[in-house]
C-alpha cells in the first residue's frame, strides 16, 4: 500500500469516526455496560478509539510528509 493510499484510508476512517459520534440508536437505552450507562460507555470508548486513530495518523500520515 502506498503512502498516499494509507493517508486516504486514515482520512476516511476519521470521517467515519465523526459520523459515529452521533449515536442516535443509544439515545434512550438504559442498559449498564462496563459499569456505566451505555450512552456514557460508548463515548468513553469513543475517546479511546479517537486516540488510537490519531496515533496511526501521526505515525503513518504526518502532515510534514507532504510539505
Amino acid at each position: 500500500m502506498t503512502g498516499r493510499s494509507v493517508r486516504a484510508l486514515l482520512y476516511a476512517a476519521l470521517v467515519l469516526l465523526f459520523v459515529l459520534h452521533q449515536d442516535s440508536w443509544l439515545w434512550d437505552d438504559p442498559r449498564i455496560v462496563l459499569g456505566l450507562p451505555v450512552g456514557l460507555t460508548y463515548h468513553v470508548v469513543y475517546c479511546l478509539v479517537a486516540s488510537l486513530l490519531l496515533w496511526l495518523l501521526v505515525r503513518l500520515a504526518w502532515p510534514e510528509a507532504d510539505q
Binding site: 469516526l17 450507562p37 450512552g39 456514557l40 463515548h43 468513553v44 502532515p63 510534514e64
Partner: peptide, 28 residues
C-alpha cells in the same frame, strides 16, 4: 450523562484534528 457526548467526546476528536491539520501548519 449526555453532557459527556455533547462536550467531551466531541472535543476529544475535533481538537486534536485541528492540531493536526491547522496547528502544525501554523507552527511551521
Amino acid at each position: 450523562i449526555g453532557v459527556f457526548g455533547l462536550m467531551a467526546s466531541s472535543s476529544a476528536l475535533v481538537v486534536p484534528v485541528v492540531f493536526y491539520f491547522v496547528g502544525v501548519r501554523l507552527w511551521a
